[in-house]
Nucleic acid binder design. Structure first.
Lengths: 415, 415
DNA sequence: ACACTTTATAAAGCCCCTTTCCGAACCCCT
DNA sequence: AGGGGTTCGGAAAGGGGCTTTATAAAGTGT
């Protein structure tokens, strides 16, 4: 709320590092041109990052006759970031170097019976331990762990205020995790994680206004407004999945009727498929992943039922995305998460058509709709990005009276 | 996009003046407490405003034993602001002093046959001339004119990109107005005008995140995000009225089906009324205002048809507002414009109930829903506020190379 | 070698906010 | 009436940021 010149510095630091990660190696000149900052400012920021060992100098580049440009690149061995994607049926953990390349992965299955926070936290702890040993990183090099948990998250207290799949209410997740994980922790939800991933490394890079539409089992929108993530007043902005699209429509697990999620979430798509082809072999009644995969294969082979099901889904999704376009007037809408990745171009194509029909001309003209270009799990990447942001945040505060870091605490190892 | 420390200064200047207008007279101490700024900063900002003659010193106040506090107040005679509300059937103009008190009003009827831009501009020019002479202000004292025109507005070029009611396309409205009006002009649309009015003087004051829902003939949402108006990338954010609420629902004038506007706009309410009471005497088929007025009276007298019609409307409106709450997670939702004012508390009550049913608990808990407390035409007030912001903007740039002011041009009088 | 070009760093200047200090203004008490 | 205490308001100093300008460093070309 209260802006200070320090915020400018932080934003610039982000911007410069972002640029270096995106285009490594690069010169100070390029950075200045890309960020719009002066050479001097870039130089000092680069100096800071060098100091932090997050980047290194990696040689020189010819410069039409003068002193050669010094090149800097991400220092891959300067630290590691861990992203944790907690989902309904699995815990997925990835360890990244500072270039945000995956160095190690671990996945734990979460059975339906394991709905207790302690059980889930156990899986997280195991997986985090696993990636650290896999990568052979000393603990000190881990700059932070970002954790994404579904539902509503209160970052101030580090609690999972509500997680629909396990019916968690006010679970002090950060405290539980702190007992097992001795690195700085950052908690948020998948919506915001994938939005941040797009903002730093994906299709929303350099865009001031973007909407990241998450199509998975759950559905939501990550909002980038004015160049930064919009969280709303209680960190629950973007709950697009439970927005009404058809008044008195399909029953949603949230208790309402006609929510967007019931038409374009994985379960909703299954219903759409059933409606256009009740006996279709594509339908695996109890397996979302299998059904969506089958649907994708059906599209590839020209199965008419698959085509109709996707067309129908796109009709709903297009209307919903058009709503977002009208409301936010973004530069870009990114379709992300596994359903979008699986159905890919055919879905995108149909959605664009539907949006063209529904959105108002002026906002429509300014908006691009694309699939997420991020090849790995965007939630892990985004969670790791939260950790990266956290690590950069710390730079700002000089030694001495440091304001309490925003609830990302480097806990002492369990005694 | 690019933030500079100057923006901080501008925001603080706004904040201080806002506070003075809200609570006049007031002391520097109070201002510092209210804005969170240091006494010194407040003092310099107050100094600036005094220099500009926008405020004056108006005496002293006792201070528990020490030196008395100097009091400052808005300098009513320090200038005038004009707000112009162009609507489908009328042009409404108000002239304000710097305390945003109405000094003069003028209204021109626009007949259905007068859809040419030149005709509308003629009405505006007449009304503006009228309020200036009514108020007996010398022209030099008019600090600016804010103009609100329905539809999509391009502020960069000063054109009305699209106005649905008159089917205007790319009308260079600012150029046309400049020929008749010799004061600095600021163009935008009613959505943003009323949002700014709430932000400065209404229910959104001091709130970082607010949604101003406009219920009139047309419907839209003004968005205040992060303490400032959210415009989107092409100044058309907030087009909530053409968001789909019922897929394949009622036909909208925009060509789509099931838009929010067709259920909660004035015409939509008339349809709701017809559905619950086809023969109701409340219905004036060709007169929106008369119908809504009758509906309000019906509510007051306990007419069951009126009650049911409003209940039905609130059902739609509640679902729509719940969507906004879920998406934006605002601190406050303000219901504004004439339909909301006319139906008042009964509507508010029903809407709250409906929102409670539809919104997710966490965003819901953080959100307040209120009627606009602004007693006059919020669009005029908001338009005038644009002019005020424009006048304050100019302070920033010292003499010398001033960057071109953002398309608010003080034109030479017609030669 | 010397001039010229280009890069990187250092210095100076400006803007913004805050903290600190001190004179001014007023109260109350003696 | 004259001090002491209290509070206000302005000026100065300090810290953080960014930019422009100057200077040093490192090349190329003649």
């Amino acid at each position: 709320m209260k802006r200070t010149s320090r915020d400018i510095r932080t934003a610039n630091r982000y911007e410069v590092l972002r640029q270096i990660i995106a285009e490594s190696p690069t010169s100070r000149q390029e950075l200045a041109a890309a960020t719009g900052l002066s050479l001097a400012t870039v130089a000092t920021l680069v100096g800071e990052l060098l100091e932090l060992r997050m980047i290194t100098e990696v040689g020189f580049e010819d410069s039409a006759g003068g002193r050669p440009r010094g090149l800097v690149a991400v220092n891959s061995s300067g630290g590691a970031l861990i992203g944790v994607d907690i989902a309904e049926t699995y815990v997925h953990v990835e360890l990244f170097d500072l270039g945000l390349n995956v160095l190690a992965r671990a996945e734990e299955d979460v059975r339906a019976s394991e709905s207790l926070p302690e059980q889930v936290v156990g899986h997280v702890a195991t997986a985090v331990g696993s990636v650290v040993t896999q990568a052979g990183i000393e603990g000190a090099r881990v700059l932070g762990v970002g954790v994404s948990v579904p539902g509503q998250v209160d970052r101030a207290t580090g609690t999972s205020e509500y997680a629909p799949n396990w019916d968690w209410h006010d679970v002090p997740l950060l405290d539980l995790l702190t007992e097992h994980i001795a690195y700085p922790l950052h908690l948020d939800n998948p919506l915001r994680a994938s939005a941040v991933a797009e903002l730093w490394f994906g299709a929303a890079r350099g865009r001031g206004n973007a909407v990241v539409v998450n199509l998975g089992t759950g559905v939501g929108a990550g909002l980038v407004l004015g160049g930064a993530l919009h969280r709303g007043v209680s960190n629950s902005a973007g709950e697009w999945g439970h927005t009404t699209m058809v008044l008195d429509g399909r029953l949603c697990r949230c208790g309402n009727h006609g929510c967007v999620e019931t038409y374009v979430g994985a379960r909703g798509i299954m219903l759409n498929l059933r409606e256009v082809g009740p006996d279709s072999p594509l339908l695996h009644p109890d397996d979302q992943t299998a059904t969506i995969d089958a649907l994708a294969r059906g599209l590839a082979t020209g199965d008419p039922v698959a085509r109709r099901a996707v067309h129908e889904t796109a009709r709903y999704l297009g209307a919903g995305v058009a709503d977002l376009v009208n409301l936010f007037n973004p530069e870009i809408v990114v379709l992300s998460s596994w359903v979008a990745r699986t159905l890919g171009e055919p879905l995108l194509h149909e959605v664009r058509e539907a949006v063209n029909r529904h959105a108002l001309p002026r906002p429509l003209a300014a908006t691009e709709i694309v699939l997420s270009p991020i090849p790995t799990d965007p939630v892990c990447l985004g969670a790791a990005t939260f950790a990266l942001e956290g690590a950069l945040q710390v730079v700002g505060q000089k030694n001495g009276k440091r304001t309490a870091p925003p609830r990302s605490r480097a806990a002492a190892p369990p005694s």
